[in-house]
Computed example of a mutant assay.
Amino acid sequence: MTSSPDSSAPRAGSGTVADAARGNWVDRFGPLWLKPYARLARWDRPIGWWLLLWPCWWSVALATGAAGERWPSLWFLLLFLIGSVAMRGAGCTYNDIVDRDIDAAVARTRSRPIPSGQVSVRQAWLFLGAQTLTGLVVLLQFNFFSVVLAISSLVIVAAYPFAKRVTNWPQAVLGLAFSWGGLMGWAAVFGSLAWPAVLLYAAAVLWTIGYDTIYAHQDREDDAIVGVRSTARLFGENTHKALMVLFGGTTVLLLLALVAAGAGFFAYLGLLAFAVHLGSQIFRLDIDDGALCLKLFRSNTAAGWLLFAGLVIDAAVRA
């Protein structure tokens, strides 16, 4: 893909990143020394840590209601927030280290810090270590079962950057990793797992495959050129039908999780609002409109709030 001389897209080495929103807080306010690392961790794009955080917060809120408590633990919510920012940044850093050659060949990603030369591979590894250490400090605040549970996810996390090279379903591997918080929140509250958490985790996996398929349609043409696989390429013109299955499955599994946890009216109301939001994404989607794909992908932050609010209100009302 080529651009005209007057294109507004940033050039490699210009400092900004092509796939980040213009005028984001990192570009506007970040110290010069910090900007390349903030971009490497995607601090300029909070949607990623929100999507990692939602299964954690949903699970905490669901467990709160099941335990008969009035409000979710603010301490747990804060820990998951800090942990999500740190580990999402670590995951992005690791992904960019592994994918640096592929990123250099794709128009949307060649301006990222490593392929553009803003950060060396050695510096990226050191930054990865600092973020991972932060995540470890957060993790150690939870009970022993939660610590072991979190560590058991590392194999999936490490495998994800390589999935796009060997399978048409890298979004499924991402879902397995990104949805782990659906188990963690329940484990933090109860020190064990139960069917509501497992069902919520499975729902979040399908949700992740769906929203990341929408996101991947931005790169469909470039991915085909460099040989990167994705569900966007796999589904192609059948993406709307696939999303009906994925988002429909998400809704059904969440419904079963609510039933298993003994949730009340407001939890189901939150689920209904969440499902309507997912349906609107399918209805509005144009897979050939990259800007719309990105907008719909980012809108899942709002979808997460709808379900979380329903779970929190339900626990408060029923306690």
Rank of each mutant, 00 (worst) to 15 (best):
L40I: 10
S116A: 15
S152R: 01
P72E: 01
A12E: 13
G191D: 10
R108E: 09
S8P: 11
W43R: 00
L294N: 14
S179Q: 10
A263P: 14
A163I: 03
F235H: 06
L278A: 11
L272G: 15
K35P: 12
D96G: 10
A12L: 05
A124D: 09
A172R: 01
G23I: 03
W180G: 02
F297R: 08
G236Y: 10
S179N: 13
W305S: 07
G65W: 08
A203Q: 10
Y215F: 11
A63N: 09
T251R: 07
T231Q: 08
H217E: 10
L40F: 12
A9K: 15
S59Q: 05
A21C: 04
M244E: 13
G270D: 08
L77C: 12
K241V: 02
F162S: 09
L256Y: 11
W195C: 00
R28Y: 07
R39D: 15
G23W: 06
V312W: 13
C92M: 13
S4P: 14
A61P: 15
L243V: 06
N300V: 00
N238V: 00
F265E: 06
G182C: 03
T250P: 15
Y94W: 14
G175W: 05
F29R: 12
A41W: 11
Q123R: 12
N143S: 05
F29D: 05
T239I: 13
R110A: 02
W125N: 02
V137S: 02
W25R: 01
S4M: 07
A38T: 03
D286I: 00
V85G: 07
L139T: 01
R284I: 00
E69D: 12
A194K: 07
L174K: 12
M87Y: 09
L40E: 12
S8T: 12
T93A: 14
S152E: 02
L294E: 12
Q118K: 01
L199A: 06
A172Q: 01
Q281F: 01
T2G: 14
G181I: 01
V317R: 13
S280H: 06
A105C: 09
G117M: 07
I209E: 09
D289Y: 06
S146I: 01
W186M: 01
W169Y: 13
W54T: 11
F274L: 08
P115H: 04
G270A: 04
A124T: 06
Q131P: 11
W57L: 07
A158T: 09
I287S: 14
L74Q: 13
G236K: 05
W50F: 15
A66D: 11
S179V: 04
L271K: 04
A316N: 07
S73M: 08
V173C: 10
L126G: 09
W49I: 02
L174E: 10
A263N: 09
L292W: 09
A61N: 12
R88A: 04
V317W: 15
D44T: 05
L278F: 13
F247D: 12
G135E: 02
V166D: 08
